[in-house]
Amino acid sequence: MSTQTQARQRYGDVHESEALRVPEQKAEQLVDALNTDLAATYVLYHQIKKHHWIVEGAEFHDIHEYLGEVAADLEAGADVLAERAQALGGVPLSGGANYEEHAPVSPEDADAYDIRTSLENDLEIFGDIIEQLREHIRLANNLGDYTTEELLREILEDVEVHAHHVEHYLEDDTLVTEGATE
């Protein structure tokens, strides 16, 4: 625990960045949006990691490896979101409880489910994040912050690709038949 008695900057306070020249009122809106995206991303990240750890069955290896890649991409996107929030003069959100409190998505409970149910739960959060990112891209564009807009577009592209792949895992067509043994 820190022995510092006064914070340099409180969470929620935004200081105008002289270098970026984004007015404080606009920066506040952007930082709030970025922190919301950051929270949602980390909620999904932790849920994906859970599924990465508990996946079982005939397709274990492929799904385990893929979910590890998804988690790494989500973490990289979260880093971009946090660094942009800081560059705009804000304090990036941090901490598990804070993420869940500020996220517009809810994780599944702590129980372990079959992989199909788990992936369906992931796909639901992916969809919510996609909609939210699109809204925040429009916000950044409307506020004239084209850098944040571009960063969000890149993150959206990654999230959409992963949502599409998860959707494919959930299709009925499979080479694995019930009760098949080798």
Rank of each mutant, 00 (worst) to 15 (best):
I48L: 09
S2H: 14
S2A: 15
E182C: 14
A39V: 09
R8M: 12
K26N: 10
E131M: 14
T117D: 10
I130K: 11
S94L: 15
H15V: 11
H164C: 11
V161F: 15
I155L: 13
A140C: 07
A58N: 00
A76Q: 08
Y11A: 04
P92F: 05
H52T: 00
D13Q: 08
L44N: 08
L139H: 02
E100A: 10
L93M: 13
Y169N: 04
T3S: 15
T117I: 13
N121V: 08
D111I: 12
R138W: 15
F60R: 06
A110L: 09
V161M: 15
Q47M: 08
G77Y: 00
H168E: 08
E182Q: 14
E101S: 02
A71L: 01
L20I: 03
L152P: 07
N98G: 01
L74F: 10
L175F: 14
D37P: 10
G77D: 04
V159A: 05
E154D: 15
E157Y: 15
A87H: 01
S106F: 02
A163E: 09
A72G: 11
I54W: 14
E108Y: 05
D122H: 09
E120C: 05
N141I: 06
D62M: 12
I125T: 04
I129M: 13
G77A: 09
P92V: 07
V22E: 02
